[in-house]
Design a protein around this nucleic acid. Structure first.
Length: 282
DNA sequence: AACCAGGACACAA
DNA sequence: TTGTGTCATGGT
């Protein structure tokens, strides 16, 4: 296992890994351990960057963690209203990851009406039971790769339900089968226009507008994508549409114009802010 | 013990 | 188009 250093300023590692965009990271002895592709990874926050222990190529780590993104430059494009200022103030250094499309897609299919801790539990069970073992340092807990669509497609519904995913089981299996049959090409979406990529993703069972936007943002890096979940919906209505009744279409229009070219980052800051400051109802 | 969770879907009006 | 019930499971 190769230790190395990823220089980066102002990287909020704990909030980035633990706040609901990825579900497989665990805090262990002051660091964060997880799996990227087929590589076990341990990350430790340091003053001038991130210390990484892993066999994964450096470029893989940098890509996943997006360490080359200048977050101050991103923040500078946010609207300067009091709510965004407070959200940035609450966690300067929060990042967006760049995850594997299938893992991200499958994870968010499993996310609907679940709390983040429960999503983590479901995904962990799925990997433990059906993922390939990956190499770990002696003494560390066993770790597993995320099972690919070819593996998920072979499982029956009761095997999937044993991972506590409930009614989402047929969605996951159905989506795995469509990917496996080539009815959707996840790799090709990277170079598509965002509207086309979204429409494609929404053809999959269990994937609506919100989950599609999560995958567009967290896996493909479409920074205009703005997932609207219950927290963000509450934030938008409460902070920007008080005493009004926006239609979903009007809300979407607002997110695409008001928050600027990095709307997806703004969304993640608002999401984290709402969840950690659990605003009293207004 | 109710209520809710990073929703989607079929169906009604 | 917008509204309601349903789905499975566990945390708070």
């Amino acid at each position: 296992l190769i230790p190395r250093f990823l220089p980066v300023q102002n990287y909020a590692l704990a909030e980035t890994l633990g706040s609901g965009q990825a579900f497989r990271w665990r805090e262990v002895d002051g660091g964060w351990e997880g799996v990227i592709q087929s590589h076990w990874v341990r990350l430790v926050q340091e003053r001038a960057g991130l210390r990484a222990i892993s066999n994964a190529p450096t470029i893989t780590l940098e890509e996943y963690l997006q360490t080359s993104v200048d977050i101050e430059q991103v923040i500078a494009t946010f609207p300067k209203d009091e709510h965004m200022i407070a959200a940035v103030q609450a966690c300067r250094g929060l990042r967006l990851l760049r995850q594997d499309p299938w893992e991200c897609l499958a994870s968010f299919i499993l996310s609907s009406t679940k709390q983040i801790v429960q999503i983590q539990q479901i995904v962990e069970l799925l990997c433990e039971r059906f993922g390939d073992r990956v190499k770990t340092p002696t003494g560390a807990r066993p770790a597993f790769a995320f099972p690919g669509p070819e593996r998920i497609a072979t499982l029956n519904e009761s095997e999937l339900r044993s991972c506590k995913m409930g009614f989402r089981a047929p969605y996951l299996k159905g989506s795995a089968e469509m990917v496996l049959r080539g009815e959707i090409d996840l790799a090709r979406l990277k170079s598509a226009r965002v509207e086309i990529a979204r429409t494609e993703l929404m053809r999959l069972p269990g994937v609506g507008r919100k989950i599609a936007d999560c995958v567009l943002l967290f896996a493909y890096g479409f920074q205009q994508a703005f997932p609207i979940d219950v927290w963000i919906l509450k934030a938008l209505k409460q902070l920007y549409f008080a005493r009004r009744r926006p239609t979903p279409r009007r809300l979407f229009e607002f997110t695409q114009t008001y928050f600027g070219p990095n709307a997806g980052y703004a969304q993640q800051y608002l999401f984290h802010y709402m969840r950690t400051h659990h605003e009293p109802e207004l």
